[in-house]
């Protein structure tokens, strides 16, 4: 193109959304502050368990949103990668005597590799085929966990799993998992603000166009699946120490839909959305405990209603309300 620089031109572009302005920073600081205080407010073990479950859900929802929201790939197998991370890391500790941290890293890696391989195998498939194939992968993974009894103890499960040394206290364990969630959030945020974000958006919007720009859609689908699944695997590796036991039913194929609901209800294709969705959907059933077993009905209803009437989820509704407020103040 023209070699003549035109400084006027670049100056008239909309600002690059690279660094947050002061409201964003204040919001982030406030969020971190609340996270730090929460376990000191919720002092009973039930409340702290809820916090840990919420933090694990945040990590899972972020991983799925990378695949589903940012790369546009219909992944219905999130539970499988959560399970792979959990079983690989735990079995490495229990059977091979590997330390917790390297085992956690290897479990994360295993989930990522499996995610990448699944994506490469199904790379030619259109959206719905991928959805079914990933669901099928979750079914296979679940059945393997149930039936490979010599390794996993099958439905009886593995018992007596302890958190990593130094994190046996639930408050410290919560801080550890919350720190992982914050790290995952920050890493994804940086990654998506880089050209990788534009590349995944192109892949999501139109593969033929993307290829015409030099983008290798195969490679980037595998990338998104590998990274998103590794994130799920990380959550999986952190889970058994909290639960103390490991049974295949914690990774049933239908559990993927719970994570899916968090991403959709919070706001697909944003980073704030899955965090919001995971927190709300972890806490909401507890607030509605009066309705007992009906909580999953509320889950399903929320999922359907949000898709039909609030496609941007909570985050989208929040943005719209903020925009309206600004307009009203200006006018």
């Amino acid at each position: 193109m023209s070699d003549v620089p035109s400084p006027v031109a670049a100056a008239s572009l909309p600002a690059a959304e690279c660094r947050p302005g002061w409201p964003g920073r204040a919001g982030a600081a406030a969020t971190l502050g609340i996270v730090a205080i929460l376990p000191l407010v919720l002092r009973d073990s039930y409340g702290r368990g809820l916090l840990i479950a919420g933090a694990l859900n945040v990590i899972q929802a972020l991983g799925l949103d990378l695949i589903l929201g940012f790369a546009g790939q219909l992944d219905l197998g999130a539970a499988a990668f959560y399970g792979i991370g959990a079983y690989v890391s735990t079995l490495l500790v229990m059977l091979a005597g590997v330390g917790f941290w390297p085992a956690l890293a290897l479990g994360t890696l295993a989930a990522g590799v499996m995610g990448g391989v699944l994506a490469l195998l199904t790379v030619r498939l259109r959206g719905h085929y991928l959805a079914i194939a990933s669901l099928g992968f979750a079914v296979i993974t679940y059945q393997v966990l149930l039936n490979w009894i010599s390794l996993t103890q099958g439905p009886l499960g593995l018992y007596g799993i302890t958190p990593p040394a130094g994190f046996t206290d639930p408050v410290r364990l919560f801080y550890l998992i919350a720190a992982c969630a914050v790290l995952v959030f920050a890493a994804l945020r940086a990654l998506l603000a880089s050209p990788v974000g534009a590349t995944l958006a192109a892949l999501r919007e139109d593969e033929i166009s993307a290829a015409s720009l030099g983008i290798d859609c195969r490679r980037w689908k595998a990338f998104a699946f590998a990274v998103g699944s590794a994130v799920a695997g990380l959550a999986g590796g952190l889970y058994p120490g909290f639960a103390g036991t490991l049974v295949p039913d914690a990774f049933a194929p239908a559990d993927s839909f719970g994570v899916l609901a968090m991403v959709i209800v919070g706001g697909i294709g944003t980073l704030r959305g899955p965090v919001l969705g995971a927190v709300v959907l972890t806490l909401a059933p507890e607030l509605l405990r009066g309705i007992g077993d009906a909580r999953m009905i509320v889950y399903g209803l929320a999922l359907t209603l949000v898709v039909l009437f609030m496609p941007g989820g909570l985050d989208g509704a929040w943005r719209m309300a903020a925009a309206r407020l600004r307009r009203n103040q200006a006018g």
Binding site: L68, H128, L260, I297, L303, L305
Partner: peptide
């Protein structure tokens, strides 16, 4: 969108199954 109807019916499915369970 190929995503929205699929996810909405996943919601319906969760509702129907748990409604039946209740």
């Amino acid at each position: 969108s190929e995503l929205r109807p699929l996810i909405a019916t996943i919601g319906v499915s969760v509702m129907l199954e748990n409604g039946a369970l209740a």
